[in-house]
Write a protein that binds this DNA or RNA. Structure first.
Lengths: 229, 229
DNA sequence: GTCTTGCATTTTGTATACAATATGCCAAAC
DNA sequence: GTTTGGCATATTGTATACAAAATGCAAGAC
């Protein structure tokens, strides 16, 4: 026996419930601010209250739910300010990832990213937004992986899940899209040149643009129970 | 009624249990790698299993415990690598905090920090390590607060709690201490000059030094169930 | 008409009983 | 001597009953 003791991935009941809830939030069945009734959800998910409550705790830890004492859990609703802070943080995390990635990247990694870039540009050319999103995400995930810091990866994933789950979509238009694709090309070049500072800068700017696009769509949105974290 | 609906801070039972457990971990009563027996802890803390388990989930979310399905919870034991990654991340977070703080700092903030710096140098001069630690922490916390990003603050606090709870202490010596105090002086100057890039750089380097000091003490320490996150 | 007060109902919090799983030990097989 | 199988025990996982708290409504006071 060697040390690779990875048990067969068997979801525990609370984990499964959390996963299902996460999906319900992401799909927009449970909207931001919605309060979660334990008994109702128990019936819907077919689990009893104990594991459901453990699922609540997990999602609260991920920042998807807030739990108010004696008043149950509700889906977080980020205010404009909260969103601004979250994207600002994302910029910092991605910038750090880029910097580290530049220091550790291999030729194979670069080749893989170039392939993704080609696919991304093809999706862009044929206006295939879903594919574009998928590849975009793959590129950012790869950068993060290449950075080789699990603490970063964990933090990044959690924050990313939060932003995705809360349905922040940018106000898409052709000019911004073209710009984003161009930025990605520059990133790969900076990475290939192992220029960490430049890559960091590009990523921070890239996220800043995304932040602006998202904030535009939230222009005069009410606070709706906006909460910290 | 205005919107300041801050309820009287009344700790829920799971929160209280979590707090107590956190203390037990920080004080070293529960050592890294120790497995936590539910029944035992129930008796010790005077709560039943349900709230204790909720406390486990909370601490697991903070990265202080790992929960293995059907095998209970245990205190995380960070490997050398894990510690390296955590400190690297801390550097990135503090760097980001410094950058933002430089953009937002007020003259009052600077005055307050200068006062702390004087206190810190006094503690340093009289070899008062506990006070030094306390003020050091206050300075870093202030920088973080001035940065004005709650998402950052939350992440920073969680990671910091983890590093503290897991009892990472650096291999202290006079040269390193002198160096650290000098670095703090430079930081205040960079902040006063609103030079975000310089402050960021100083903080990253400062954390790197701390990382080195900690890693030295972990030189050839075994992995002991070292886990991710 | 508005504000308070008390009660019924709903919902959350905690304890505990029972079920499922893991652990350790001993005997039997190879 | 090592390995395998089966049991007894310990420990975790889940459901549920009961307790505590919050909510909503209606009746009465002002």
């Amino acid at each position: 026996m060697d040390g690779s003791n990875i048990p067969i991935a068997r979801l525990t009941l609370p984990e499964a419930a959390a996963e299902r809830l996460r999906a319900l939030i992401t799909e927009g069945v449970l909207l931001p601010g919605a309060k979660l009734n334990e008994r109702e959800l128990c019936e819907q998910l077919g689990v009893s209250r104990t594991p459901l409550r453990e699922a609540f705790r997990m999602l609260a830890g991920d920042g998807l739910l807030v739990q108010l004492p004696n008043r149950g859990a509700q889906v977080v609703a980020l205010s404009r300010e909260d969103a601004r802070h979250a994207f600002e943080m994302m910029g910092a995390l991605e910038g750090f990832a880029g910097e580290r990635a530049a220091a550790r990247v291999t030729e194979d990694d670069i080749a893989g990213l170039r392939r993704l870039q080609v696919e991304m540009e093809a999706a862009h050319a044929r206006d295939d937004l879903p594919t574009y999103y998928r590849i975009n995400r793959a590129i950012h995930d790869t950068l993060n992986t290449v950075a080789g810091n699990p603490v970063l990866t964990q933090t990044y994933r959690t924050l990313n899940a939060r932003l995705h789950a809360l349905r922040f979509r940018s106000n898409f238009n052709r000019a911004k899209w073209d710009q984003a694709v161009a930025e990605h090309r520059s990133m790969i070049e900076a990475l290939a040149a192992r220029d960490g500072a430049a890559l960091r800068d590009l990523l921070v700017r890239h996220l800043h643009a995304k932040q602006q696009a998202v904030l535009e769509t939230m222009k005069d949105q009410e606070v709706l129970g906006g909460t910290s974290l």
